[in-house]
Design a binder for these strands. Structure first.
Lengths: 219, 219
DNA sequence: ACCTGAACACCGTTCAAGT
DNA sequence: ACCTGAACACCGTTCAAGT
């Protein structure tokens, strides 16, 4: 029998969170289990539970770490900067989309929700939106950003590389074009755009559309 | 031993889907398992697998049934009608929010995605949005509707009854008010609105904001 | 204080066997 | 064709025992 792998560093909460992120990135949502995690960290489940209360807390910690990194206090670019910061984080870590949705709804007073809401709200305020409209404007931006970024990440997750991605979008586009013309005129009409669109460009156009609505109401 | 409960009707795919919906409604996302489902249907797992390929397909079928019911062909009220149709469906079946998010991202060519996209797109077209902007306008509305409705359903899910709900929103609002004034000025400022807001009203205001952006770009 | 690893209750799914 | 129910591989979590 080969000698047991010896851990080079002591087990810490931070090391566990890092390993979890790596596992989620490489093997996807379903890839993180306490079995795979203990294997990677060369330890037993009990050791992990000493540092972390349960799987939910572990996922929350992983999510918070990435969101904090994506939204530094000195982030430039106004609302577009915030939107792209989250967009890129979700692109790099597709599982974040699902996590953020659950965290937002299950624990709206916990760290990650105020973190994102504040970053968006700060920029909404900078646009001189009247007080009564700020909550709605920030909510609309929040939901659009998370939804659109998640959608895009999902496409990337299914597709993998660049050419695979093109193939995937192409197959979706084709499926849409084959829908019943009477029942699905709109979906058929935009099928071509589904194939050709540039993600970031499309994403930012959506932001601008919402911003146009915000400033239109200002007057 | 009491005589085994005899099924009154034969097992069909429809009956299985109905039982799954009922189970999800009464016990939540985690309440639907093949154990609870076989118990309710007085059968074994093999019987269910004869009618349904796997749990994913069962969830997809349940989702599609409710969305189809929520968006009939003759639905009145324009885009507000579509938005409220989905809002109410998600309010009545909070687990729908998560399901729709996964379905939308995992299988964008399967029935439920075109169903919703078409309903929204039809109304976008009716607003005489230029061809090049229709895809983005429909996407923005889609993400906002699903995100905001899901958020609201999540509040309702945690809270239960009306007074419980008020208590829950109150506790979130209070938690927001206790955030660091230097780091969270915006979130603190809108905390009061979080407590007082009317869901449907707020939800429709968000729709109108996006619509304002759509028509503002038209000119 | 920190870690080990066997054990528990539970899950989705399969499949030989029945009718 | 339709259903039964034991069995399989896997999951998150616990806990007595070690250092």
């Amino acid at each position: 029998m080969p000698p047991r792998t010896r851990r080079s560093e002591a087990l810490t909460r931070q090391r566990i969170v890092d390993a979890a992120i790596e596992l989620l990135d490489t093997t996807g949502d379903a890839g993180l289990t306490f079995r795979t995690l203990t294997e990677r960290l060369a330890t037993g489940p009990g050791a992990i539970y000493w540092h972390v209360a349960n799987k939910g807390e572990l996922l929350a910690a992983a999510t918070e770490a990435l969101v904090t990194a994506a939204l530094p206090a000195d982030l430039p670019g106004g609302i577009h900067g915030v939107a792209l910061g989250l967009f890129d984080a979700i692109s790099a870590h597709p599982w974040l989309a699902t996590q953020l949705a659950t965290q937002l709804s299950r624990s709206p007073s916990k760290s990650v929700t105020p973190l994102i809401f504040e970053a968006i709200g700060r920029e909404v305020r900078a646009l001189d939106v009247p007080d009564g409209d700020q909550f709605i404007a920030a909510s609309a931006l929040l939901h659009y950003i998370l939804g659109a970024a998640g959608q895009n990440a999902a496409n990337a997750r299914v597709a993998g590389s660049g050419t695979e991605r093109a193939e995937f979008l192409n197959s979706v586009s084709k499926a849409w074009e084959q829908l019943d013309p009477d029942d699905y005129p709109f979906t058929r009409a935009v099928a071509a755009q589904m194939r050709e669109h540039d993600d970031r460009e499309q994403f930012l156009a959506g932001i601008d559309l919402i911003l146009a609505g915000i400033t239109a109401r200002e007057r």
